[in-house]
Amino acid sequence: MAVSWVFLSRAYPAVPPPQDVVKALYSDIGPRMIAHAIAVTLVNSLTGYTIALTAAIALIAGAYLNRHVDSFVHALNTFIQSVSVLVWAIVFVMIFGITSRKPPVLVAAAASFPVLLSNLYSSVRALDDRFRLLARLLGATKLEELYYFILPGTIPYLAGASRAAIGIALRISVVAEAFGASGGVGYWLMYSYNYGWSAGVFAWAAVLVLLMILVDILVLQQVERMVEKWKM
């Protein structure tokens, strides 16, 4: 990959050589600024993911307890799958303005919500019928069934979906940051582009890639492996 990069930088002047990018990272940008941008992006995407997760669980619980809510969730699931994230990004920036911290958070939420909702919705339906039988044998109420059997039963599926959802939230919050002026990796990536500083663009892109790989390996894969044992 590094060799191809060197060749590309020789063929296309717009592509900076690796040493320029490393220099940009260490000297021009610096660890403090990188850490701050990463923190902003992580907060944006994780807050968005948390909002999406809370909404998805609330809707799934409602759908399990009430068939009218179930019909609504079914329709909502179809609708949100068909709305582009770009639309959400533009709409939220239009509503809250470019300096607001809200668009990246809400865009991350809007991007991860469909993944979480559809995975949770199908996992509740596909959940082992034996859990429901056990709940019935014990005389559990519908609410107890949901709380003790159904929701914990979906956690392995939720962990898998969260891995995808957090990945999407990270990637997409960066897009929303690029539209606004509230900081974060996406903002600085766009900033570097606007000033024609290609080494900066590549440096911030590298930060983003590294951040996503680290989050995936250190957190998401571990969580997924841990709860995999919960499957029957």
């Binding site: 859990f131 014990l138 005389g139």
Partner: peptide, 23 residues
């Protein structure tokens, strides 16, 4: 029941005490 049904995310004790709690 014919098929053993235990919740995989609880220990045997956890499963047993959950049954008691629900009842």
């Amino acid at each position: 029941p014919q098929e053993t049904i235990l919740l995989p995310w609880r220990t045997l004790r956890g499963n047993i005490m959950l049954a008691a709690k629900i009842r």
